[in-house]
């Protein structure tokens, strides 16, 4: 469904991504693993075209989307959930959802506020609160909910478990599995191997912007030395 081919990305002069190559099949969850600063967020942004890759291609549903404006990528069904809970703090929960809303799209669920609140009951109680009044976990839920309002077929989740209470992390894992069961394809970036193990089918490990391992979860489990070398456990 998504194919990243020979992608190189830069921030100014810093070469952040070095020849990335991997694919994500429809209906699967792939975890992009690596430590802080390994290039996970840049990978996400390069797929989303928020960072334009200097070379290489990103193909989504058979279409080369490299160089597209980000809003067009989003309208094509790629949903992006940023790290660090980038919600609109000056807007209410409902307004945040409104910003994410897109027209219905063939082949993916059409989300409504009610459905989103079913998925995240905590948000329902706080629908008229300003974003800045939410707790860290609630903000993280809101970023996901907001992206779902765009009816994506594929979502990019950047570090969904970072810095939130363990209970919420568990809830996140459940949500991801539920979304998968509804047919969504997911690429998530993680540092927390436990979390990744709970939800992912496939794994991509990057280190210093370079790909070190691509394979299924069971393949990674068969090679504990890779895990020990590149991931903090």
């Amino acid at each position: 469904m998504l194919e990243v081919k020979d992608v190189n990305s830069f921030y100014g002069k810093a070469h952040v991504l070095n020849d990335l190559n991997f694919r994500v099949d429809a209906g699967t969850v792939v975890a992009l693993l690596g430590r802080n600063g390994a290039g996970k967020t840049t990978t996400m942004k390069s797929i989303m075209q928020l960072v334009k890759p200097r070379s290489g291609t990103v193909t989504y549903k058979g279409q080369n989307i490299t160089g597209w404006p980000s809003h067009k990528v989003a309208r094509d069904g790629l949903g992006y959930v940023p790290e660090e809970r980038r919600i609109f703090t000056q807007l209410t929960v409902l307004e945040n959802l409104e910003v994410g809303r897109q027209p219905p799209r063939d082949g993916s669920t059409t989300w409504t506020e009610t459905m989103v609140f079913d998925l995240f009951p905590n948000l329902a109680e706080r629908r008229n609160n300003l974003g800045k009044a939410l707790s860290g976990g609630e903000q993280q839920m809101l970023t996901i909910a907001r992206t779902l309002m765009g009816n994506p077929a594929f979502i990019l989740l950047d570090e969904p478990s970072e810095g939130i209470a363990p209970v919420i992390v568990e809830q996140m894992a459940r949500v991801i599995l539920q979304l998968k069961s509804e047919g969504l394809t997911v690429l998530l970036s993680e540092q927390n191997l436990h979390f990744a193990q709970a939800v992912a089918d496939g794994v991509v490990i990057i280190e210093h912007g370079t790909q070190k391992f691509v394979g299924s979860l069971s393949e990674l489990q068969a090679h504990p030395e890779i895990r020990d070398q590149y991931l903090s456990v």
């Binding site: 363990p166 568990e170 894992a173 927390n192 436990h194 979390f195 193990q197 709970a198 939800v199």
Partner: peptide, 13 residues
């Protein structure tokens, strides 16, 4: 993290 948190899911997986 003690590795117990996702025990259930891991098993299911």
């Amino acid at each position: 993290g003690g590795g117990t948190l996702f025990k259930a899911q891991e098993d299911a997986h």
